[in-house]
């Protein structure tokens, strides 16, 4: 096994809190099966692009899968905090690894958690998503959305955990910022029908693009803006990853 694979395996085995993972899985399912089902009765089906009309339950199911991306991101920051708090960060860096390998291992671990979590939520949501046909283009678009979204939020959480002085402040601030990301994105409602100020904020929000690209793939509903949305998300992910690498290099040991 090479260095990276060993580090990723170690991260998965040592740093994952099973209770948190369970909650992160239940959380999106709650939205799909409770909120989606309940609100569908009062919100009529609506068009999401390419002439596709979906129920609110279906719409929310797509958003709930991308919710796991943000949860996966929190995990990246928590892993780094765990290692710093318990002295394993320094211990690993005094072993046969480089800093770059360590940070990449956290990102890859986050991707595995994010993708596995999304797939699980997707599988559980299949009863709601019946009638969806998964084409190669759909798989590509949904996969790309989850990948870029996880990279952005993983890198964001790493940068936060480097900048903040205590694990308590990391938990609070990450919860608050992720809450803002969530409610200024298209996860819960079609953003083009939201008030102007929310629409303005959503243009910067990578979760909006993650969710839009994911839905475009899932429901075969690409809009003319899709290439632009993919580009913006890729750029945001790349910029945030670069920030995370620089922040990580500044960690004092």
């Amino acid at each position: 096994m090479n260095n990276m694979a060993r580090l990723v395996y170690r991260n998965l085995r040592a740093n994952l809190d099973k209770a948190s993972l369970f909650f992160e899985l239940i959380f999106p399912l709650f939205f799909i099966f409770v909120q989606g089902a309940a609100v569908s009765g009062i919100v009529p089906p609506f068009e999401i692009g390419n002439g596709k009309v979906v129920s609110y339950a279906l719409f929310l199911a797509g958003g709930a899968v991308t919710l796991t991306v943000i949860n996966g991101g929190t995990n990246a920051g928590t892993q780094l905090w765990f290692d710093r708090r318990h002295g394993m960060f320094e211990q690993i860096l005094m072993g046969p690894f480089t800093r770059a390998q360590y940070i990449f291992s956290i990102i890859i671990t986050t991707l595995i958690i994010g993708m596995a979590g999304s797939s699980l939520v997707f599988l559980f949501a299949l009863p709601v998503l019946s009638g969806i046909s998964i084409t190669a283009q759909a798989a590509l678009l949904t996969g790309l959305a989850l990948f870029l979204g996880t990279v952005f939020f993983g890198a964001f959480a790493i940068s936060l955990s480097v900048a903040l002085k205590s694990s308590e402040s990391f938990q609070i601030i990450s919860a608050v910022t992720f809450f803002i990301f969530l409610f200024t994105s298209s996860v819960f409602f079609p953003i083009d029908r939201a008030p102007n100020y929310i629409q303005a904020v959503s243009l910067l929000n990578p979760l909006t693009y993650t969710t839009d690209i994911f839905r475009a793939g899932l429901f075969d509903a690409p809009t003319p803006l899709l290439p632009l949305e993919m580009t913006v998300l890729a750029v945001e992910a790349a910029v945030m990853f670069t920030i995370a690498v620089f922040a990580f290099r500044r960690i004092k040991v």
Binding site: R13, A14, N15, L16, D17, F82, H86, G87, M88, E90, Q91, M94
Partner: peptide
């Protein structure tokens, strides 16, 4: 090389 640091280092969850 091997290193035993002054500070504690352990994985609490395992």
């Amino acid at each position: 090389i091997g290193v035993v640091q002054q500070q504690e280092s352990f994985d609490p969850g395992i």
